[in-house]
Design a protein around this nucleic acid. Structure first.
Lengths: 203, 203
DNA sequence: CCCAATCTTGTCACGGCAGACAAAATACCT
DNA sequence: AGGTATTTTGTCTGCCGTGACAAGATTGGG
């Protein structure tokens, strides 16, 4: 070696620029020139350090998914034991709260429509969220059958997800508190759901 | 006029081809040549009857939103009075059941991230769904304050939406019945939510 | 000092797509 | 038949993004 390798920092810098461009313009619209400009570097350097566009996209996806996973670990680990009452704040104030993250996830989501592998990876992240929440829920009681706890967590997360998406349209409830109350009920009472008539059960 | 105008049929044919391409490849990837091939017509005709690409996209969006609105009318109107117990089937078996429609909506959703006007129009559709469901719910009891009914409908629809999206990832609950039961509870008991501790209320 | 690895610059060619347009063909009307 | 509005064909051009590459600059080791 003759010259210090700055490749890693450059790559990081370029990917950060790429990500910023993607948030601003959407993945499909971002060109190498855009990234280069955002990174304040000649276009050729982007190609030299990252490679072709596909590789750049792959790198970005890896980066995003890794960070998503890390955020999940940070939120779920670190002694923040989740009791039923803490699920709503967890979902609404942390996981689905950040606008930029949501936009990025939407971008990934859109990609995943036609990308089997990415779909798997996205599913893995959300599944992990469901499993970890449901595990904590099951701690409260006897966990003979974990399926109901899983489904309760799944339901709560689906609800939070849908709510977050609608929020992006500017479509919001009159009172977010009511949604949170529903989440509380879902994760608290999954072992003894309110009785429903047979007709409703069959629906 | 000297020659019979076949413009309307052609436009319809072209837009149908365009839509098929979009479902298959995603809007960003579809070229005029793709549409022309799908429509089995020379590329120039696409330009002649529709115009430039932007206009074609605009036409497609109009077409999709109009159809979405029509489907909503068909499902909600026509004597299918929605009682609380019918909300779950309505959402899961009709509104969010069709895979192709879901893919198209995802495409629109993605576009709407950077298109204010489209975002408004999408919001209008979902808002209408919420309002109509909540109206039917409110019929059951005294409708002094419609906000709780709106929020209950909003919650149920958010949940169904989230569930449908997760289904696209292959992420499903162990038992869909549990989700439906939750929806039933949400739309049935919104006037008397299960009591929550003050701590939970504050969450 | 010289070499070698790494980084940096600038430029070029290819391909694909959108847009424009000139004719030719068709069908209806009088 | 002739005129006219409409449809259809085929081709051409310019733009833009990617990928490729040659040549120079920088930095540390021998």
């Amino acid at each position: 070696m003759a010259r210090p390798k700055v490749g890693d920092e450059r790559r990081e810098q370029i990917l950060a620029a790429f990500e910023a461009c993607v948030v601003r313009k959407g993945l499909a619209e971002v060109t190498l020139a855009d990234v280069a400009e955002e990174a304040a570097q000649p276009r050729s350097l982007v190609r030299y350090f990252i490679g072709n566009r596909d590789e750049m996209v792959t790198c970005l996806i890896d980066r995003l998914l890794l960070r998503g996973d890390a955020q999940l670990s940070a939120v779920l680990g670190a002694g923040s034991v989740v009791s039923a009452a803490e699920v709503a704040p967890l979902l609404f104030d942390r996981i689905f709260a950040d606008h930029v993250t949501n936009v990025v996830m939407m971008e990934l989501w859109h990609l995943s429509i036609r990308d089997e592998a990415l779909r798997e990876r996205l599913a893995a992240i959300y599944r992990r969220l469901v499993v970890e929440v449901s595990d904590k829920l099951a701690l409260d009681g006897s966990a003979a059958d974990s399926a109901p706890a899983f489904d309760a967590a799944f339901t709560a997360i689906s609800l939070a997800f849908g709510t977050a998406f609608f929020a992006h349209l500017g479509l919001v409830p009159n009172d977010f508190g009511r949604i949170r109350t529903n989440v509380n009920s879902i994760v608290r009472d999954y072992r003894s759901p309110r009785s429903t008539s047979p007709a409703e059960e069959a629906s």
